Simulated assay, not measured.
Amino acid sequence: MTEGFSTRAIHAGQPADPVTGAVVTPIFATSTYLQDAVGEMRNGYEYSRTKNPTRLALEECVAALEQGTHGFAFASGLAAEDTLLRAICSPGDHVVIPDDAYGGTFRLFAKVASRWGLDYTPAPVSDVDAVRAAVTSDTKVIWVETPTNPLLNIADIEALAELAHEVGALLVVDNTFASPYLQQPLTLGADIVVHSTTKYVGGHSDVVGGALIVRDAKLAETIAFHQNSMGAIAGPFDSWLTLRGIKTLAVRMERHCDNAERIVDWLSGRADITHVLYPGLTEHPGHKTAAAQMRRFGGMVSVRLRGGEQAALDLCNRTKLFTLGESLGGVESLIEHPGRMTHASAVGTPLEVPGDLVRLSVGIEDAEDLLADLSQAFGD
């Protein structure tokens, strides 16, 4: 019998410690391990860049949550992305990326990987035909976020997986906004799942990390080689913090979604807002796809303000419970201006986000207090 999500979150990769019986995975703060003889390692532990028990517990847990077979934990989401690109691409290869990708991901492609010889084309990942048109004979990867950051567009994972495999490419899905609780792309045909575990997976704004999850053994072997060779691994304390956050992922996501839906209802129809971007709205162009592939619609909400960029900046500066700050997915609510903050690297490019856009990461506080904070920030 397949165990439920919350059971896997609490137990996968985390048996009681065999020496002490501790029910929480210990922090193995060690760099090296005793060998019984030259080349005779205990359970494969040689050096902690290669393998650490605390990191291994996290890697097994995230793999179980995404219904994958192999997980890899990194020092950040971008460390995971960089390692993946080096593992599966070569100079001269081409990647299709979202035309509203996370600013850090865009910067990685535009300012780092392009200098290494990797080509890329932005495309609206919610439009399968547009993605197909962006594919070239050198395309090795179709890279999508769903929902996207920050415009909350929805990609049809199953359809894009079919397209990727048709052209001999891999489908990579950044599942950070949804979390493994709301969506499991590997079950829909994706080849690789990427997470910034800094966000919902860790969930408490106290750790930075990233993860890759796959099902294919050969692909896992390639990623493992590059993880060890490049060395951007998650440390044992960061791994422990992330594991602690994972245990409550399901209950946190339910509250994030509950609060987001309350806020979306309140925002919808306001005269000072031109667009509320949330896949749970029936008028959202990706609503049907999101409903088919997600458990619920998440805790991220974006709005566009009628007063333009200045109105957006004013709203960000006036909230009190919504903390003005970058990142997302923590228990506390955050507000930001993507154009000047998380997506500043895209200014002046085709991926530049609208100046009137504000992004909300809705936390798990009492919804009434969050609504009161937004009301005073709008000047009601």
Results as ranks from 00 to 15, higher is better:
R255Q: 14
L160M: 07
A367K: 05
V303I: 15
A29C: 00
M341E: 13
T319N: 02
A155L: 07
A312G: 01
S6P: 01
P350K: 10
T136Q: 06
A190E: 01
M230V: 08
V264N: 03
T2C: 06
K288H: 12
R55I: 00
A16E: 08
L118D: 12
R42Q: 10
G355K: 12
V193W: 02
A224Q: 15
T69D: 10
A133V: 13
L305Y: 04
V331K: 00
V23C: 05
L219F: 03
A367E: 14
P91N: 06
A290D: 03
P53R: 09
T20M: 08
S333C: 06
R295N: 09
E66C: 13
V172Q: 11
A178L: 06
D314A: 15
A37G: 14
H256V: 08
G203R: 00
L315G: 10
P147L: 12
L84K: 05
F74N: 03
F225D: 12
E40C: 11
G209C: 11
T282L: 13
V207E: 12
Q35R: 05
I10S: 12
G44K: 12
Q35I: 00
E336F: 03
V131E: 03
N149P: 00
G231P: 06
R55T: 03
I364V: 15
R42F: 01
H165D: 14
L186C: 07
E254R: 09
V172E: 07
G329Q: 08
Q67L: 10
V128T: 15
G203V: 06
F72V: 04
V95Q: 01
T105S: 15
L305M: 14
T289A: 13
G13Q: 07
G117H: 09
F28G: 00
R359T: 14
A29Y: 09
F109I: 07
I223R: 06
P180F: 09
Q184Y: 00
L281F: 04
L34E: 09
F72I: 01
T50W: 04
T242D: 09
T146L: 06
I263Q: 05
R42M: 02
A211C: 01
T30N: 11
A37H: 13
P350R: 05
N43L: 13
G104F: 11
V62P: 01
D216H: 12
